[in-house]
């Protein structure tokens, strides 16, 4: 993601106190910043504080933006750091719990679990059922229990639809680490959903 002329001139106008530039900046990024901040912190109050911090930082540091990366990428990076900072101290010991939520395998490479469990396929259930009631709560709870670095990667890849390389640039992780976290996060959520939804008679 390379910065372009439009990004640079937007920031220049912002520095000059141009309210229209502020509107444009907010219009382009505030919803995305909130989504990412909420996705990482999982608390509306924390997400609000992060959004304010991020935009204050962007206004204050706009001189240091040199267009080597795209403005969007820079803003995602500030947001990710601010949201992870907000989580500091609130972190639960969940890393071992994540291991327990991943599929386990027998020595021959087959998945553990009885036949009905490994064959459970709830993917054709009506989406309105999957996204409401108890199932939605199970999914939300599973997302809550993911370590925050995994949530950051999950939101950046699957909601913001950045590439692995772009996520690595934003989070400062290596591409293999991004891929591994994304895969493990999805597997953990899938496991929770499957324990809840299947196998059903």
């Amino acid at each position: 993601m390379q910065g372009d002329e439009a990004d640079l001139s937007l920031l220049e106008r912002l520095r000059a106190g141009d309210a229209n530039a502020l509107e444009a900046l907010m219009g382009q990024y505030s919803a995305r910043v909130y989504r990412l901040a909420y996705g990482i912190t999982r608390a509306a109050g924390d997400a609000e504080e992060v959004v304010q911090d991020v935009f204050l930082t962007v206004c204050r540091k706009s001189e240091s933006f040199e267009g080597r990366a795209a403005l969007g990428s820079w803003i995602y990076r500030i947001t990710t750091n601010a949201a992870l900072n907000k989580r500091r101290g609130k972190r639960q010991e969940v890393e071992t719990a994540l291991e327990e939520q991943l599929p386990s395998f027998k020595a021959d490479g087959h998945r553990e679990g009885d036949r009905a469990y490994v064959l459970a396929d709830w993917s054709q259930n009506p989406e309105r059922d999957l996204l409401s009631g108890e199932t939605r709560e199970v999914l939300q709870g599973a997302i809550d229990r993911l370590p925050e670095h995994y949530r950051a990667v999950l939101v950046l890849r699957d909601v913001e639809e950045l590439s692995n390389e772009e996520v690595a640039e934003v989070t400062g992780e290596s591409v293999p680490s991004v891929k591994s976290r994304l895969h493990r996060a999805r597997m953990a959520l899938r496991e929770q959903l499957t324990r809840h939804l299947g196998p059903r008679a």
Binding site: R35, Y38, D121, S123, L131, V155, D158, R190, L193
Partner: peptide, 15 residues
Amino acid sequence: TYRKTKELAAKVNRV
């Protein structure tokens, strides 16, 4: 179910 999980998680994360 993996593919569906990815879609569902993206939907509930779209706040």
